[in-house]
């Protein structure tokens, strides 16, 4: 008889909607900081994981795109 393993439902890592606005560190030159919000495949993480507000997430997106254009971050990891 094989035992069934039921995992508990996974809780979200970060609650959506938490405010962390006006983050002055979001800059396309600070790639070590930007890389924290990217997957190992160099994709941008969702707001659910970054916990940024909408404005900061948009800034993050813009900064990552600028960094990719300048050859600082890869398009595909």
């Amino acid at each position: 008889m094989g035992m069934k393993i039921a995992a508990k439902p996974r809780a979200p890592l970060v609650p959506v909607g938490r405010k962390r606005c006006d983050d002055p560190r979001i800059d396309y030159k600070d790639i070590a900081y930007l890389a924290k919000f990217m997957t190992p495949q160099a994709q941008l993480q969702s707001r659910r994981r970054t916990s940024f507000c909408a404005q900061c997430q948009r800034q993050l997106k813009q900064s990552v795109k600028r960094a990719r254009f300048m050859g600082l971050l890869p398009f595909v990891g």
Partner: peptide, 25 residues
């Protein structure tokens, strides 16, 4: 090499992640 990884907290702890994922085995 540039670090491309997921949400590596600084100084070993991240206040945003504290106490939220306690139920995850």
């Amino acid at each position: 090499e540039p670090l491309v990884g997921a949400l590596v907290p600084e100084d070993g702890e991240s206040p945003e992640l504290e106490g939220v994922a306690e139920d995850v085995p």
